[in-house]
Design a protein around this nucleic acid. Structure first.
Lengths: 343, 343
DNA sequence: CGGATTTACTAAAGCGATCTAGTAAACGGT
DNA sequence: ACCGTTTACTAGATCGCTTTAGTAAATCCG
């Protein structure tokens, strides 16, 4: 019982009594075969559970029916893990409708990410590429253009004309919503424990806070590497200063949980002595005590939209404009309240 | 500035003044070229940043250099999300050493998972398949055998001879460790809030608890769908009974956090009134207040081992025996202590 | 020193699809 | 009835690599 050798297009052609070319035409909905013959061929294909070899297809430069997603993930600082899973689920769900699959690759830095992109392109393994985490002065856009590849960027603002189109979450609006909510509660000293400075959304959010100085809000932005250890240290120092903030906003839920604990250890209960909020929601944010106020976003849908934009480019072959993704909403929970000292 | 056409092995051969065959020999460390020529060829390859097209390679070698992982993920109840991410990172890290990539597919149930396996096999898209979450009476093993595919199972015990080999975590030992730890603290009424009954590890862990009846431990196993809502409800009912448990063990960290909160709401502080522990660790388990005692496992390494086992099968072509994965260790934290009424 | 072996290569045949160019038969219009 | 067009196919080149068979030169050995 040796493993039967692969069924090829030639075998199918023989069974149908036609040439391999005809089978190819039938398969790809191309003219050149009569409807009758096409049906016959397709049913033989069906019976034999045959599918064309993707390697051979890729070689002739046909469509690979695959899109690539190389995720630069230094350490394990991808922020919320749930974000990642939901995003992939969203992307997948849209792709699988079109019988396109996702090639996932985890890389350590942007250099490696671009290297992977090059390989994918040069061997025709993917029809399109998904990018995430835009940076100021992002080298990837140019590379994508040089590779003449289709791509989408999941980002914080619409891409400039001619660049890689993006599905974007208006991070300045998101920041506006959360900071204003705290301001409305009466907070005037707000700290923002952010991620790395080179990430676009960090800068956008920080700018919003800075701008609120006009409304009498004194903001304080501290960048971190997303690690809970840094978040704890930062929180400790914030809360031991003389002019300590009455509200602290974290870039993600893990850091918020870390901060919450430090506050409790220092005898500062949330929300009585300090309000805590996060820019990233998760199941756990709603389960712990006190539950954490957060901006909730439909990550699944974000993934779907990105996939849709990419597929349209691949199929229609035209460069589409950027599109705004789902708008995050505020989920107010127990960790925020008016400041104790507020009038 | 139209996109330059691909550099091929023929171009490299021309530059080196040899035939394409010679380049191939040099590249793959095969005899047939002198060391001197080999060096010359390799440095030209280097200079031109050339890499062989994997499509062409796959076509001739019949190897796809890809392994597939179809993840059945009904709803969004994959337990801990961190587990999933770490596992993939581990698998990836091992695969990428061998220039093999991961094809990830999210499916809704086992039937769809098996359908995806069939497609992958029949079109030679993957060289091997990764399976996870073994069930009692798992239909997948037989299917894999019928497809004549290489595979690994990430599971709870060694696979029977001849079946899909597994990398296994001895879940009975894990359960033994955690339950014994609680028993040693003096707990005699222990509840176990488990996952779905059809999952192998649920059954194995429950059996361990049952067996401890001999040592005077009264165990109580409640199965759930992994949702925090169920975990909360179960915890509430456990703690309002007359003979309430002095320790509750959850199958994952999300449920443990949910349970912890319910306990607090009912005025039962952990660990004073009830001890809480989880079979799954996470960053957050160590950050919340009180931090949660959990079994820590090296999920990254588990992924690496699974990938290694699979690659060996693919390359060597032999069926290897199952191997034991990294042993989880107990991480005792604040949520467990001797019961108040003890001794 | 001459025949057998080894070394270092080249030429060319695949691998399994797609796709262009070519052909025979059917059709259509006058 | 004749010529031009359309239809339904086939033949064969092609993609970029691996690999086998073949060959000329260098090396070995008794």
């Amino acid at each position: 019982m040796t493993s039967a050798k692969r069924v090829t297009i030639a075998d199918i052609a023989r069974m149908a009594g036609v040439s391999p070319g005809a089978v190819s035409f039938a398969l790809n909905g191309r003219p050149g075969v009569s409807d009758e013959t096409r049906q016959r061929i397709l049913s033989i294909v069906e019976e034999n559970h045959w599918q064309p070899s993707s390697a051979a297809r890729a070689l002739v430069g046909a469509r690979a029916n695959t899109v690539g997603f190389a995720l630069a993930r230094p350490a394990r600082s991808l922020g919320s893990e749930a974000f990642f899973t939901d995003l992939i689920a969203g992307i997948e769900s849209r792709l699988s409708e079109s019988k396109v699959s996702l090639q996932l690759r985890l890389v350590t830095d942007i250099a490696e990410e671009m290297e992977v992109h090059r390989q994918w392109r040069s061997s025709n393994q993917v029809d399109g590429i998904i990018l995430i985490d835009p940076r100021d002065d992002d080298p990837r856009s140019d590379r994508i253009a040089a590779l003449d590849a289709r791509a989408v960027l999941i980002g914080s603002k619409p891409s400039p004309e001619g660049a890689v189109p993006s599905v974007w979450i208006a991070d300045d609006e998101v920041a506006e919503t959360l900071f204003s909510y705290l301001a409305a509660l009466g907070h005037t000293r707000i700290a923002y424990v952010a991620g790395p400075a080179e990430l676009e959304h960090t800068r956008l959010r920080a700018e919003v806070l800075d701008r609120m100085a006009a409304d009498g809000i004194s903001g304080d932005v501290i960048t971190t590497d997303f690690s809970p250890a840094r978040a704890s240290a930062v929180t400790r120092s914030l809360l031991s200063g003389r002019l300590r903030p009455t509200a602290i906003v974290y870039d993600n839920d893990v850091m918020a949980v870390a901060g919450l604990r430090v506050a409790q250890e220092m005898g500062r209960a949330a929300p009585r002595d300090v309000s805590i909020a996060s820019f990233d929601d998760s199941v756990i944010a709603g389960l712990i005590n006190p539950s954490i106020t957060a901006m909730t976003r439909d990550t699944f849908e974000l993934g779907e939209q990105a996939a849709t934009l990419l597929l349209q480019q691949i199929v229609a072959g035209i460069n589409l404009p950027s599109a705004q993704g789902p708008t995050p909403t505020l989920t107010a929970r127990e960790s925020t309240a008016p400041p104790a000292a507020a009038s």
